[in-house]
Design a protein around this nucleic acid. Structure first.
Lengths: 191, 191
DNA sequence: CGGCTTTGCCTAAACAGTTTAGGAAAAAAA
DNA sequence: TTTTTTTCCTAAACTGTTTAGGCAAAGCCG
């Protein structure tokens, strides 16, 4: 029996592909072992538990997504950057639904801090530099952006907007325009 | 052995409570049977599968949430209604994290159509009546609202905003004010 | 190359959750 | 009371997780 040379990273990669095919929830050690043509127990030489496997998939996806976002943002500012960042998230969710779902796995604080999570926040802040927002407002806006991107992608992925007009593409563009207008108009702090 | 008089609805209710205690993912037939002091196999007289159990919990939560939203919206309009609706979702997510997670279970189209889902869309439309939006824009706005509420509650629940200043309460208020300002300003259709 | 260590994958088995089949007794209907 | 239905039970098959221990391939050293 020739060896495959498995390792934690390769398992995470295979797990990510598997997640895109069958859904993140359905990623099991059994299925992954089958995918590699290996017995289940063999995986446990490389990972401690299926939970660790899922965490590794999440970290990988978070990283990949941050890379894409950073690349998309290079050389862009203002509205252009806002649209680019939004589209990176939405496109990733549609292209890699399993990995996208993985990015929402709850991580314990230390793991989260060491993940690409903070990088995502930094990227959002970079986009917001194009709009004149003072400090508390900028943090609020980071959260708003996170909420809108996550919420929209998540609902769209769940099919909440399918089979109804106008199509979600138009709602997405409308939403990005709305965010741009909102941020341009400055903080709406007055009740 | 006296009978408990279990039925699908009672199981869904118990499942909802269990979900709030241990998380929606951790709701299993075994755990629920233990909770009722009954053997696992007994549950299968009332439900076909654990998936059906989860669907029933989701439908129950969706219904309960729509009821709360409808009650909160009664006698309110405009910004007042917007804040009320947003707070219902956020409060429900914080008060009943397991049930809230259940509301995001993917339902097959027929089940979704028969659920309280459409009622939620109706409630969002009712809020938006307070703002002058023409038809395509109103649908976009329904989706934006859904995205923001869902995204914010979801991220907040995941602890994404905890342990950082300003606290998420302020970001939430800021976000609601921003949405109100945005909707009041009319459709930002021009690029 | 031949022997030593390390490592990767194996078999085997314990454990937990799901699901079905068939039985006994409580509750309801006659 | 007798009959029927319903509710819960025991038992067992099946899938996925996880650990223990073994054998052989890969890597290292003379």
């Amino acid at each position: 029996m020739p060896r495959l040379g498995l390792n934690p990273h390769r398992l995470a990669l295979g797990g990510a592909e598997l997640a895109d095919e069958v859904g993140f929830e359905q990623v099991t050690a059994s299925a992954l072992a089958q995918r590699f043509g290996v017995k289940v127990a063999s995986l446990y030489s490389h990972i401690r538990s299926t939970h660790e496997l899922k965490v590794r998939i999440a970290l990988f996806a978070l990283d990949e997504l941050a890379d894409r976002a950073a690349e998309a943002l290079a050389g862009r500012a203002g509205k252009d950057a806002l649209f680019a960042l939004g589209n990176v998230y939405r496109d990733y969710a549609r292209e890699h639904p399993g990995r996208y779902a993985a990015t929402h796995l709850r991580l314990d604080p230390q793991t989260a801090a060491a993940s690409a999570g903070p990088r995502h926040a930094q990227l959002a802040r970079a986009v917001l530099r194009g709009y004149q927002l003072d400090e508390p407002a900028q943090t609020h806006a980071v959260r708003l952006l996170g909420g809108v991107f996550h919420g929209f992608a998540s609902l769209e992925l769940g099919g909440a907007f399918s089979h109804s007009t106008p199509d979600s593409e138009q709602s997405w563009t409308w939403t990005l325009n709305a965010l741009d207008a909102l941020l341009s108009a400055g903080p709406p702090d007055a009740g």
